[in-house]
Simulated scan of single mutants.
Amino acid sequence: MKTLISGGTRGIGRATALDCAARGWPVALNYRGNAAAADATLAAIREAGGTAHAFAADVADPAQVARLFDQAEAALGGLDAVVVNAGIVEQVMPLAEMTPERLDRIVRVNLTAALYQAREAARRLPDGGTIVFVSSAAARLGSPGKYVDYAATKGGVDTLTIGLAKELAPRRIRVNGVRPGIIDTQIHADGGEPDRVAELGPTLPLGRAGTAAEVAAAITWLMSDAASYVSGAILDVAGGR
């Protein structure tokens, strides 16, 4: 399963890359600017005996997305799967206080970029390929007072998942999504809440936050033949929240 993962060198993307490598699947990883994280992820995969390549690209730029897919196809000898994972949050605040610049950036990186990646995947994947979108439980919870902009973009990703699954079904390309809940990654600190996992974890139905590896396991299952009759599904990985 030759796989391209955007945002593949940190958090859920990195865990997914490691899970793919454990399954013997070669991976191409995208990152935007953190070359050190990319190098560390490549080293971890290769030390485990896996095959991996990393390519810098701004996935909100359609020309760079096309180049990323060119590079991934050349490195891996084609693609079988794409994980659309790259995404950001900004500092928590109510919508009334958000600047136009912030809103534009959130929409471009989380939703427009997902559309660009999905378009390239639809053009390039062979019949029988698979796409997995990484959404968020925020899409159904709304994230009031924190980042409704982020939640709104993830709602768009959910709609994209459902529509594209139907559009690509005649080619037997399966399209699914995962909605992580409170997961122990750097994204909370990026939003100005470094203690969010510790504070909210015990309040969740399962009594703890999730791990990036647990989300990755859901992603790779959706990619695998074990999920051969699953398409248009959005799987919550949110501890019952």
Rank of each mutant, 00 (worst) to 15 (best):
I88N: 03
A60W: 00
F55M: 10
I183R: 02
P100N: 04
A44R: 12
L204S: 00
G239M: 01
T3L: 04
A43I: 01
R14K: 14
L222Y: 03
L168M: 11
L125K: 07
P205S: 08
R102D: 11
Y147H: 12
T51L: 12
L79I: 09
R10Q: 15
L95Y: 13
R46I: 09
A218H: 06
H53F: 14
M93Q: 15
D184T: 11
L95I: 13
A21L: 01
M98A: 13
T220Q: 05
F133R: 02
A63V: 15
D61P: 03
A63K: 11
D236T: 09
Y229T: 08
S143C: 10
I183Q: 04
P180N: 08
A60G: 14
G239P: 00
T159S: 15
A169D: 05
M93H: 13
K166F: 03
V27I: 02
E120I: 07
A227H: 06
N30Y: 00
D184N: 15
G11M: 00
E90L: 13
V27P: 01
A227W: 08
L168R: 06
V89K: 00
D70R: 13
A212N: 03
G177A: 15
A137S: 08
P205I: 10
R14E: 04
R46H: 10
A212I: 04
A139I: 05
I88G: 01
T203Q: 15
R179P: 00
L103T: 04
V175T: 03
E199I: 12
A54F: 01
A52V: 06
A43M: 08
D70L: 11
D184Q: 02
V107C: 06
P205A: 09
Y116R: 05
A38T: 08
A217S: 13
Q71C: 13
G192R: 08
F133H: 15
T185F: 07
S228R: 12
M93Y: 06
E101G: 13
A213S: 11
W25Y: 12
R10S: 12
T203S: 14
T3H: 05
R174Y: 09
G78P: 04
A137T: 08
V83P: 02
S143N: 14
A165E: 09
A15W: 06
I173K: 07
P94A: 11
N30K: 03
G191E: 07
M1H: 13
R119F: 06
G7C: 10
R67Q: 15
R241M: 13
G145R: 12
R67A: 15
Y150V: 05
G50F: 01
A40G: 01
L125C: 11
I88S: 07
R105G: 00
R208E: 08
Y116E: 06
G239W: 02
G210C: 10
A165G: 14
A28K: 04
A75L: 10
G87Y: 00
I173C: 05
R174T: 01
K2L: 08
D104S: 13
